[in-house]
Each structure stands twice: as structure tokens, then as C-alpha cells.
Amino acid sequence: MPLIFHKKPALVVYVTCGDPDLATTREIVLAAIEAGADVIELGVPFSDPVADGPVIQRASERALKHGTSLAQVLKLAAEIREQAQSTGLIVFSYLNPILRMGLEKFCKVMRHAGLDGALLTDLPVEEAGQYLREMRQADLATIFLAAPTSTDERLKRVAEASTGFVYAVSRTGVTGARQQLAGEAKTLVRRLRKYTKLPVAVGFGVSTAEQFAEVGEFADAAVVGSAIVETIERNRGREAAAVGEFVGKLTADQ
């Protein structure tokens, strides 16, 4: 599994697939990889993204307008995998599209596409019994969210159920850029380390090179999502080039 963080901090890049269209998403992802992204989160657009802020909501709406589906995202993943063998590729989705496809089929197609794992925003560890079994059987990583509000007992369960890495949510709230990273991100990562030796990635609100470097001081990786999606939104017609430049700036000091 290429879910390996080569650098510290490693860069995890999120994109909403199908925004503005799937062919462009492919170019964007390849440009991000070229510019230094270690892991790509392929976001599946959903009609009701309760955990997302306005930027990703808008991107999801655009992607759904022309019918982007989970099946198409998995197909796109296979194409990207052909071009990028050493980059981690995971699916980032809400649960319902996956239930609709069927967990078994989802895992089979993911494995076939060369994906490394998945993170399902609204599937907490309690409800993940069958998901975990199917994913383990297909040798796919299950990344779960840890939140600043999680109790120690919950962090332990999240750590135990996670493989690949653990995704620490930097603060309470939806996805989107923040002026400052809260001190609670650091505290959360420290609390998590008690329960796991897996790498910890910090996400939600990381948007600048300074924040990226700051996360590197206490975590193994940083996830940049809304800032990437906003770059795509603002650079119609030259999305891939703009994302490449943006990723290049984030990682310039490494």
C-alpha cells in the first residue's frame, strides 16, 4: 500500500471529483502529485454534505449538476493510478452513495482500481462493523476521524479501527480555511499518540504554507482541502496549473 508519508509533514490533498468535470479532476490530481502531494483524497460529491463548509458545498453542487457519481470517481481513480504508482489514493465520501452501491461491491471496485483506502465522514466506529470486515478482507485502509471533542475512550476506538493513518480534525466545525489553527489540534494529536503508532494527519482549516509548516511540528501530515477547491473555483480554465502552483508554494520550504 503506498499510504506512505515520505516527507514530514507529508501533504494530503483533497479534491471534490467532478468539479468542474472529471477530466479536469484527473489533470488537477496529476498536477498536485507532480508538485509534491503524497496522498490524494478523492472526494465523492454528495447532495447533503453536513460536515462541509461553503467552499466544498459549492464544489459538490457543481459536480452533481452534471451527475458525478461514486462509480465514476472509482473509474477516475483507476486512471490516476495508472499514471501515479507511488502516491496514496483514498476515497473520501459520505456513507449513503457507498451503501447504495453496496459495501461489498465498493470494496471490490476500489481494490480493482488500485485505491488504498477510504474515509467515510458520517460513519463512526460504532456503526462500522461490516465496513471494517469488508475493507480488511480487501486489504484496504480504513481511516477514521478523531475530533477535539472525542473522549479518550473514543480516541482509543478510533485509533484501533484505523489503518493507514488517523485523520485528526483540527477543531470543532465544518471544513474550510481558518485564520489560525487552534491549539486544540496539537493537544488532540498528543492525546492520539497514546493510542496509536500510526501516522496522524491534521485537517480542517489548513490553507497556507505557514500553517502547513506549523502542523509539521507536531503531526505527520497535513490535509489541505478547501484551499485547493477554492483554487480550482477561482482559476477557471487553468485549474490544474493553478493547483500545481499552489501545492508547490505549500511545500516550497521542504
Binding site: T121, P124, E127, S150, R154
Partner: peptide, 13 residues
Amino acid sequence: GRYVPETLMSALE
């Protein structure tokens, strides 16, 4: 069941 992002789980508990 209980299908929400982790941030809300403790509040539901």
C-alpha cells in the same frame, strides 16, 4: 443508529 461525524459523537453520548 447513529451516523454522524466524529465531532458530534460525544455530544450525542
